[in-house]
Amino acid sequence: MAKGVKPRVKVPKSASAGEIITIKTLISHQMESGQRKDKEGNVIPRSIIHRFTCEFNGQSIIDIILAPAISTNPYFQFEAVVPETGEFKFTWYDDDGSVYEEIKSISVI
């Protein structure tokens, strides 16, 4: 597992039914591109997060395939509809097989 991986997600705590909300996500990850070389001239192997998904109560909002061209600490901002009270589930998939998850609940008022 890559070191110091910490997901951060910004979701409002409540919304009205059918409201459109903006979600911001960031995960600390070095996103080693596989293009850089160390002091001895050896290529540093690629190590990135290659997929990010966001679901609400099991229904997909967004599914992103990431390439090495995504910057360090991958950041995404997108919009979602909130039909009911429930949970947002955010999942990041690392090249080394690790899966990082974050869950945020939202209540419809």
Binding site: S33, F56, Q59, I61, I62, P68, S71, E79, A80, P83
Partner: peptide
């Protein structure tokens, strides 16, 4: 990046940072 939108996406838009 390849961004696929699901049924609950409010807008077919996204922001990120690239190299």
């Amino acid at each position: 990046a390849a961004v696929t939108f699901g049924p609950l996406a409010a807008a077919q838009s996204a922001s990120t940072r690239v190299r």
